[in-house]
Simulated scan of single mutants.
Amino acid sequence: MEIERKFLVKQLPDQLEQYQCKIIEQGYLSHNPTLRIRKSNENYLLTYKSKFGIGQDENRTAKVENEVEVPLNEESFLHLKAKTDNHMIVKKRYLIPLEEGLTAELDIFKEQLEGLRLVEVEFASEEAANRFVPPVWFGKDVSLDRRYTNGYLSTVDSYNF
């Protein structure tokens, strides 16, 4: 299960280059349920995400989904990439340690989404997600705004909202 909160970025943290960085390219084969391919540096994954069995909760502040990841090889990734109708996202992801053993995953988008910066934090429980106090460099909470899901972002021609 994946429990995460997502925020816009008010300002980039200082000395960003000191943090581990990944170059990510990902695309979507299906949006409901989500079927995604991802290249992260030289690792390739197929990810299935679904809300199956997760009840609706109007008081929920975090995005909650079932998630399964399966490794791919480069050949399989490229084969599936051709089926994404060029709906690919390219971004740099910085892994920034936070208090309580949490990690901020700061995404700086490239190409058609240039200018968009989002940060996600994953949690062990919804209670932990609800207690989370974001650092000052985090901006508006967009966890439940579907316009900021990577699946939706893969379908837009530019970041203009």
Score class of each variant (00 low, 15 high):
residue 69 E to G: 14
residue 86 N to C: 11
residue 99 E to L: 09
residue 30 S to T: 07
residue 89 I to D: 03
residue 147 R to V: 04
residue 73 N to A: 08
residue 136 V to S: 14
residue 135 P to Q: 01
residue 119 V to I: 04
residue 41 N to A: 05
residue 141 D to R: 00
residue 73 N to L: 13
residue 133 V to D: 06
residue 90 V to N: 12
residue 80 L to A: 02
residue 11 Q to M: 12
residue 107 D to N: 03
residue 15 Q to V: 14
residue 136 V to I: 14
residue 28 Y to V: 07
residue 98 L to P: 01
residue 67 E to G: 04
residue 44 Y to D: 06
residue 135 P to S: 06
residue 49 K to D: 06
residue 137 W to I: 04
residue 127 E to W: 07
residue 161 F to R: 09
residue 143 S to E: 03
residue 120 E to T: 00
residue 96 I to N: 00
residue 148 Y to A: 00
residue 26 Q to K: 05
residue 142 V to T: 00
residue 129 A to S: 02
residue 114 E to G: 11
residue 5 R to Y: 03
residue 54 I to D: 08
residue 45 L to D: 13
residue 31 H to R: 13
residue 78 L to C: 13
residue 38 R to Y: 04
residue 5 R to K: 05
residue 79 H to K: 14
residue 44 Y to G: 11
residue 53 G to I: 04
residue 75 E to G: 14
residue 92 K to V: 07
residue 95 L to E: 09
residue 48 Y to N: 08
residue 24 I to V: 08
residue 51 K to P: 13
residue 107 D to V: 01
residue 15 Q to A: 14
residue 79 H to W: 11
residue 7 F to A: 08
residue 82 A to Y: 06
residue 131 R to L: 07
residue 65 E to N: 15
residue 82 A to T: 15
residue 85 D to Y: 13
residue 77 F to Y: 05
residue 50 S to Y: 10
residue 157 D to V: 15
residue 30 S to I: 07
residue 157 D to P: 15
residue 29 L to D: 06
residue 101 G to P: 04
residue 64 V to A: 06
residue 30 S to C: 08
residue 159 Y to T: 09
residue 39 K to M: 10
residue 129 A to L: 07
residue 89 I to H: 05
residue 28 Y to S: 08
residue 83 K to I: 11
residue 24 I to P: 04
residue 112 Q to N: 12
residue 142 V to E: 01
residue 128 A to C: 03
residue 6 K to S: 07
residue 83 K to A: 11
residue 33 P to M: 06
residue 59 N to W: 13
residue 8 L to S: 02
residue 136 V to F: 11
residue 159 Y to I: 04
residue 102 L to Q: 03
residue 100 E to F: 11
residue 150 N to A: 14
residue 14 D to T: 12
residue 69 E to N: 12
residue 105 E to D: 06
residue 71 P to K: 15
residue 52 F to I: 14
residue 87 H to I: 13
residue 56 Q to R: 11
residue 22 K to L: 15
residue 94 Y to F: 10
residue 80 L to E: 04
residue 130 N to V: 09
residue 131 R to I: 12
residue 73 N to W: 12
residue 71 P to D: 09
residue 151 G to L: 09
residue 52 F to K: 14
residue 98 L to M: 02
residue 111 E to L: 10
residue 142 V to F: 01
residue 93 R to F: 00
residue 94 Y to N: 07
residue 57 D to T: 00
residue 55 G to Y: 02
residue 94 Y to S: 02
residue 160 N to A: 12
residue 7 F to L: 03
residue 61 T to W: 10
residue 160 N to I: 10
residue 106 L to T: 01
residue 88 M to N: 07
residue 53 G to C: 00
residue 62 A to N: 08
residue 80 L to M: 05
residue 62 A to E: 06
residue 134 P to H: 00
residue 95 L to H: 07
residue 68 V to Y: 05
residue 127 E to A: 12
residue 121 V to E: 00
residue 110 K to L: 13
residue 60 R to F: 02
residue 12 L to I: 03
residue 97 P to I: 03
residue 147 R to F: 06
residue 32 N to H: 11
residue 86 N to G: 10
residue 2 E to D: 08
residue 161 F to H: 13
residue 111 E to H: 09
residue 5 R to I: 01
residue 104 A to F: 00
residue 46 L to W: 15
residue 62 A to I: 02
residue 55 G to I: 06
residue 157 D to K: 15
residue 43 N to I: 13
residue 51 K to W: 11
residue 50 S to Q: 12
residue 79 H to D: 15
residue 50 S to C: 12
residue 143 S to H: 00
residue 25 E to S: 11
residue 139 G to Y: 03
residue 59 N to R: 14
residue 161 F to G: 09
residue 102 L to H: 01
